[in-house]
């Protein structure tokens, strides 16, 4: 079924929307959730939350890109779950590694900033990503949006581990310089 037809089902409040979404994008969402939570049961629960989130948010939302919309819902929920696990000292996996990698270029510590993600911040990150060559940007997104493990990225792009590590390292350094220049660090 086409995405536009699935979205139409949501707008018609037809519960087939959920089953069609799960059929088409359940695996995609589960991969994202699993990358972050590293647990089958937690990932499953997260995907269910995502489906519920889609049901309650469409309408009024009308996503231009349904899978990315679902992916964002999944990622957000999974990160929140990961945070809760981390507070309980249970967290681990790729998100922890990705977090540590980014933490190397960012000031440390938790703060009230957690609640202050402004549109300006997102726009700045978008500008940074837009300036990257396509491959570097995609590798960066695979690591810090999808939280793919390094071997998965290597396989996807056909790159050696050392190349992916090097590419990510260089991009993080560029990011640090950029955020400094823009006054975010």
């Amino acid at each position: 079924m086409e995405d536009s037809q699935i979205i139409q089902l949501y707008w018609e409040r037809n519960t087939d929307a959920i089953s069609q979404t799960e059929r088409k994008y359940g695996r995609y969402c589960k991969t994202i959730a699993h990358n972050i939570l590293q647990n089958e049961e937690d990932a499953e629960e997260c995907v269910n939350d995502t489906l519920l989130g889609a049901w309650t948010s469409i309408p009024p939302k009308h996503p231009d890109n349904l899978p990315v919309y679902l992916g964002k819902l999944t990622r957000n929920r999974a990160i929140n779950a990961w945070r809760a696990q981390r507070r309980d000292k249970r967290g681990g996996g790729t998100l922890t590694l990705a977090w540590e990698e980014i933490a190397e270029i960012m000031p440390s510590g938790e703060s009230v900033e957690q609640e202050m993600i402004s549109q300006e911040t997102v726009l700045a990150i978008n500008r940074f990503l837009a300036a990257l060559p396509v491959t570097e940007r995609s590798v960066f997104l695979r690591r810090y949006w999808y939280f793919d493990e390094l071997p998965v990225i290597c396989e996807r792009f056909g790159f050696r581990s050392s190349k992916v590590k090097s590419m990510l390292y260089r991009t993080r350094i560029k990011l640090k310089k950029y955020l400094k220049k823009e006054g975010f660090l």
Binding site: A103, P107, G109, E113, Q114, I117, T121
Partner: peptide, 10 residues
Amino acid sequence: MNASLFLQAM
């Protein structure tokens, strides 16, 4: 900005 904020903003 710290790492958590960045990954959330992403």
